[in-house]
């Protein structure tokens, strides 16, 4: 279990060194999207149209924050459950995205896509919304404002703490961790 500090956008060089279980502190820009936004983004990709942000090296954060208090860039902002994005993530990775942040297990198609396209699925601590929200220094809605908490936001983070769940070698921390501590 190693610790890394990485800045987005991520490259294949960044992602290939990571192993399931490593702790990474991310800085730079992340883009937020949940299922409703993913559906629209993948529709645009399928039609060959331009996306509201550059996918190359991007890290997508699955989050629907609370409204900000006056003076704050964003409210509480922990991860949502990721399986709802499983049908969209391989397309995002195939088109240059290098990382996703969420919580909970992914399907085999996502794990395979991480291996094929040098992508990483990071887990953030669910229910740590106050702590994670504080690591977000700015937030700006850049697409689909009508989706409210589910709109696409460009957020800047500093030392955002995540753990590598699925790495570029096809490994899965959820499976490995459980096997290690299971009492049969």
């Amino acid at each position: 279990m190693a610790t890394y500090h990485l800045t987005t956008p991520l490259t294949s060089e960044d992602t290939r060194q990571l192993n399931a279980g490593d702790v990474v502190y991310l800085s730079g820009v992340l883009y937020t999207a949940r299922d409703a936004a993913h559906k629209r983004l993948v529709d645009l990709i399928d039609k060959g149209e331009e996306l509201p942000f550059d996918l190359e090296g991007s890290v997508i954060y699955f989050v629907g924050p609370t409204p900000p208090k006056p003076g704050d860039p964003i409210g509480s902002a922990g991860p949502t459950t990721s399986y709802r994005m499983d049908s969209y993530s391989p397309t995002m990775l195939a088109h240059g995205s290098k990382g996703m942040i969420g919580k909970g297990k992914r399907n085999q198609a996502v794990i395979d896509a991480c291996k094929e396209y040098d992508g990483i699925y990071f887990g953030a601590t669910g229910g740590a919304g106050a702590l994670l929200g504080k690591r977000i220094k700015s937030a700006e809605v850049i697409a689909y404002p009508e989706l409210g908490p589910e709109a696409v936001r460009r957020i800047e983070v500093e030392d955002f703490p995540v753990t590598v769940i699925n790495d570029t070698h096809g490994r899965d921390l959820y499976q490995m961790g459980r096997e290690q501590y299971e009492v049969k």
């Binding site: 919580k103 297990k105 669910g126 459980r178």
Partner: peptide, 10 residues
């Protein structure tokens, strides 16, 4: 005994 652990990480 399932070994799931905090946030499922084991």
């Amino acid at each position: 005994n399932l070994g799931i652990g905090a946030m499922g990480m084991g």
